[in-house]
Nucleic acid binder design. Structure first.
Lengths: 106, 106
DNA sequence: CCGAATGTTGGATAGGTGTCAAACAGTGCC
DNA sequence: GGCACTGTTTGACACCTATCCAACATTCGG
């Protein structure tokens, strides 16, 4: 069976205002930084720094990020592996992700 | 009398999540692009592209942008001249404004 | 002084949002 | 089959927000 992914917008359909709105929340901005370190994270992974939030709240935030085009979600069994669409974002908005990460580190 | 400005956060106090939230609205993202062309604009200036909105709505958007740290507002008589805090933003978040503008032009 | 112009403020309203809780669905394990 | 685990969905709730309108404050020009 082919690898299954949750629905996500095509790169060309990503709207900048929706992307920025998705990042305009402290929790999602934090997740963005974590995802940017590379690799995949399932929703209950430790080190995400969202332990204080209800699992349904985390699920909500991940959906917002995915629908904004920031992340992609691979479904494996009962886990969903989330990762940043770094390559596609860099292609569509050159330098943006890098500048955002730099701003987060500052 | 010294030049008067509306209250605005100090550069060091600008929060990235608030800045992104301010830009996460189509109207304000449009204003951001216009302001980035340089110069000052008073609220009823033509060419702002917000003619379809009520003046109080425009006033609201400008306040959000100012309080997020994006813009500065100089008060002259009954006019308020708004401009992007480009230099300070570049100092605090290097490359971010440029990447955003590039993303808007793409 | 009076009227026109520029914005701001407050109310009203409809819709969006972040959060939790409970119920549900699918999956893996014994 | 039955239970635990992972995550989604729905509802509820409080809060925020984008918009318009009306009223107001301030300022400029006769």
């Amino acid at each position: 069976m082919p690898e299954e992914r949750l629905p996500q917008p095509d790169v060309a359909d990503i709207e900048l205002s929706k992307l920025l709105q998705a990042l305009g929340d402290p929790v999602r901005l934090h997740l963005f930084r974590v995802y940017a370190e590379g690799g995949e994270y399932h929703c209950s992974a430790e080190g995400l720094g969202v332990d204080h939030l209800h699992k349904s709240t985390v699920s909500h935030h991940m959906r917002v990020m995915r629908e904004a085009g920031l992340t992609t979600t691979r479904v494996v069994g009962r886990n969903r592996y989330v990762s940043l669409r770094r390559g596609e974002l860099d292609e569509r908005f050159p330098g943006l992700v890098g500048a955002l990460l730099g701003a987060l580190e500052g």
